[in-house]
Simulated assay, not measured.
Amino acid sequence: MANKTKKTVRREWTKENIKELKAHSKARTPVAKIAKETKRTVGALRQKALHLGIGLGHQR
């Protein structure tokens, strides 16, 4: 039986993607919802936000 692992798909962050992420940050959209819309993982979104110096989701 063949090992069926999911292949990682890496996509570059375009200027449009970054603009959209900043808009979601400002609107405080939940990270899970952003992940579904952008087809990126929650971890990828959080890492990019950290790199950009913006917050994501709710801040306590």
Rank of each mutant, 00 (worst) to 15 (best):
K39R: 12
K22F: 07
V42C: 11
T14R: 00
P30H: 00
L21Q: 01
V42Y: 12
P30V: 04
G53C: 06
K15F: 04
H24S: 12
A49H: 00
I54Q: 04
A35T: 06
L21S: 11
P30C: 05
T41N: 11
L45T: 04
A44H: 02
R46Y: 05
T14D: 00
G53Q: 07
T41C: 05
H51L: 14
E16Y: 00
G43L: 14
T41H: 04
Q47P: 03
S25Q: 10
T8L: 13
T29K: 06
A23S: 13
N17G: 04
K19L: 13
K22A: 10
K15H: 07
T41D: 05
L21I: 12
V31L: 15
K4W: 13
L52T: 04
T29H: 01
W13I: 08
G55E: 13
A23H: 02
L45G: 06
R60V: 14
L45E: 02
V31M: 07
R46Q: 15
A23D: 09
E37F: 07
N17V: 03
K15G: 09
T41M: 05
T8E: 13
A49L: 08
K22C: 08
T41Q: 03
T5R: 10
A49V: 09
G53H: 08
K4Q: 13
E12L: 10
I54G: 06
T14L: 00
H51T: 14
R10W: 10
A23Q: 14
H24Y: 14
L21H: 10
N17C: 06
T14Y: 03
I54R: 00
K26L: 14
R10K: 14
E12N: 11
N3L: 00
K7N: 12
V42E: 15
K26Q: 14
K48H: 01
W13A: 01
A32G: 10
